[in-house]
Write a protein that binds this DNA or RNA. Structure first.
Lengths: 144, 144
DNA sequence: GTTGATGCAAATCATTTGCATATTC
DNA sequence: GAATATGCAAATGATTTGCATCAAC
């Protein structure tokens, strides 16, 4: 279990929400996925444990988790949003258009760029979870 | 008319497609929008000229234009894709979460970042039309 | 016992598709 | 005239919502 049981329960609690079995299962399922997980994957994973859980419950739980900052969303452009457990270190992602694999990069990689934009345009970039597409090293070698 | 009549007709033609009245209207409508235009806006604009045109025709035409590189898509996260006529100079966009206004920034602004990612991770970033969210100078002043 | 959460079914919203007809070349 | 586009209507796929029942506190 990647998430800290106590923290998410306390967070829910503080916001006037209840700690339920299904919410626990759903959060576990998000953690179980490495990197971004689609709602469908979360749903399937949860369903394996509890056959009666409904898609709408998963949607509602994920929306709540995002609202409370426990989970981050990323739009990887494939029609459905993807979810990821919030990690202590802010980061971004590189998604390879060739093999589909994704890798994390630290927030530092973008710092210089956002600083530049801030200085030049007075615009404060607030994208805390960016997804960049391209070709990874391996795929790049195959198709130059 | 921002687009060059001859170029898009030739492009269509070369790819074995036909030049139709509705495609011309749709491309005009995309040009008429400053920055990104939603499909709904394009549709509404075209409808003002031709009351019989169908949404599916707009979807089909836009898909074709994107495929041929005449139009670019951007996912601004609001549920619907947005479209923009392809301009000679590659660029990206800053969208303000406060007032919704968007501004263009040159591709150079990201160059340093993509170079860095390339050197560090061997990953070739291929996002040619990125949308960054944040707060513009004016909104930034109002809510610090 | 209240209040908030869940399951179910039906609704919504953006986008796609099948098909008969109309248009371009 | 042959091949491609269009309009229409119906299908799809992701996400949301209304509501009666159920579980957490």
């Amino acid at each position: 279990m990647t998430h800290h049981l106590l923290r998410w329960e306390a967070t829910l609690w503080a916001a006037g929400h209840r700690v339920t079995r299904q919410r626990a299962l759903i959060l576990d399922a998000v953690c179980a996925g490495e990197g971004h997980t689609s709602l469908g994957e979360v749903f399937a994973r949860v369903r394996r444990v509890d056959r009666t859980i409904d898609r709408s419950t998963v949607y509602r739980a994920l929306r709540l988790f995002v609202e409370l900052g426990l989970v981050l969303t990323a739009d990887t452009g494939g029609g459905e949003l993807r979810y990821e457990i919030t990690k202590p270190h802010p980061h971004h992602h590189l998604v390879c258009r060739g093999c589909g694999r994704e890798q994390e990069i630290g927030a530092d990689a973008l710092r210089a760029m956002t600083d530049h934009v801030s200085r030049q345009h007075g615009f404060r970039v607030a994208t805390d979870h960016l997804v960049l597409f391209g070709l990874c090293a391996a795929c790049s070698r195959q198709m130059p």
